Simulated assay, not measured.
Amino acid sequence: MSRRPATINALRQGGKPALARALSAIETERGSMMLAGFLDAAARAARATVLGLTGPPGVGKSTLTNALIQACRARGERVGVIAVDPSSQITGGALLGDRTRLATDPEDDGVFVRSMAARDRLGGLSDDAIAAVVLMRAVMDRVIVESVGIGQSEADVAQVADTLALCIQPGSGDSLQFMKAGVMELPDIVAVTKADMGALATRARADVAGALTLTRPVGASDLPEVVLVSAASGEGIAEFVDHCDRLGAETVRCGARDRRRAEQQRHWVRDAITRRFGSVGLSLCAVDEMMAECPGPFSAIGALDQKMRERLGLVAPID
């Protein structure tokens, strides 16, 4: 059986095969403290920026992802993609069909695409998907996470993204409809897809801009940019990438990215414990203290899980 790389340097030097083995280990070594330590090391060694794409089904997220891959590869960037597909509430299976819209060259070592199931997470990011983002972030130059985008639960991707892009298509509704969707407070940038539809796309941009002014503090000067993009014609793709890069550079300069990532890691720990033991279980866990003691969030999850299982009598205490 192929083993995952032992170190982050080995992961980086091993190319796509090494990354594939590391991603497989997320499932085959689930619950292992050795895997947790490896993921913590990857979290500390992050070098890629993470772009999250969210929005309702059919808006064109996969098609936009394909265009972004091509644009970033043209700049010489190595790109990783996590495409999350919804899981059936009946069978538990997932089609994992997003990759069929991604016209990537399997021989291109600069692109790695992994489709993952949402499992029981309506918002789209399972624990496995979070771990996959962390691994890709340590290897690639840019990571794109495409969320499920089901109903009004589209916010999970914000817990891994450095920049969150909301995708809207022409004819989606007026400003009130966008506000009702409950996601206008989240994005750092908004992409109106299918810009080649002309006047409809221009109207959608105006409606989104109006909704943003109503959901942000009065007088806010940092309203997200609303960009018209068309994967079919290429319109706006380069501008979209440039704007994401400017946003990223500014968050690094002012320290906002480090603060955001630290809060994301805290969320991962709290969310993992809550889903395993409920809100009462979370209240019994000293999350911040454990995170201060552990080398990273994944080790903290493992340690808190062990303590709770000991407390519940599910496992024998570790001496």
Rank of each mutant, 00 (worst) to 15 (best):
V143H: 05
V139F: 04
D196P: 12
R101W: 06
P317W: 02
C254L: 07
L200P: 00
L53W: 12
C254Q: 08
P217Y: 10
A43P: 05
A303I: 07
A191H: 10
G37W: 02
K16D: 02
L64A: 00
L284C: 05
D222K: 12
L122I: 15
L314F: 04
D162L: 02
G124V: 00
R257F: 02
R257D: 03
T28E: 01
D109N: 13
A67Y: 01
V145G: 05
S172A: 15
E29M: 03
A238V: 08
R4T: 07
V157L: 14
G248A: 00
R114D: 01
R78Y: 00
Q13V: 13
R121D: 03
Q152P: 09
G236V: 11
L68H: 03
D288R: 11
A10H: 10
C254F: 04
R101K: 15
I82R: 05
A71W: 09
S2V: 15
L176R: 14
G302R: 14
I26Q: 10
T251A: 01
G171C: 02
R266Y: 06
I150Y: 07
A316N: 07
V208K: 13
V192H: 00
A316Y: 00
F277Q: 09
Q159N: 12
E293H: 11
L314K: 13
M136W: 03
L11A: 11
D288I: 07
G236Q: 08
F298K: 10
G14F: 04
L39N: 04
A181G: 15
V133I: 11
G92I: 06
V252Q: 14
A10S: 14
D188F: 00
A71S: 15
A25G: 13
A220I: 07
A158T: 15
A262Y: 12
D188K: 04
G236P: 10
L68P: 03
R99T: 09
T215C: 12
R261D: 02
P170W: 02
A272C: 11
L64N: 02
A131W: 01
A204M: 09
M136Y: 03
G182R: 03
M290D: 04
V269W: 01
I237G: 08
A211R: 11
L282Q: 03
G123D: 13
V315L: 00
R44W: 08
L102N: 04
S279V: 12
R266H: 13
V252A: 12
Q159R: 13
E310K: 02
V208I: 10
L122C: 04
T65W: 10
P106N: 05
T49L: 04
S147P: 10
F240K: 10
V50R: 01
L64G: 02
R253S: 13
S115I: 01
D128G: 09
R78F: 00
D196E: 15
A249D: 08
A199S: 14
E250L: 14
A209L: 00
S172C: 07
A181C: 07
V280Y: 08
C294S: 01
R47G: 12
D141V: 08
I130G: 04
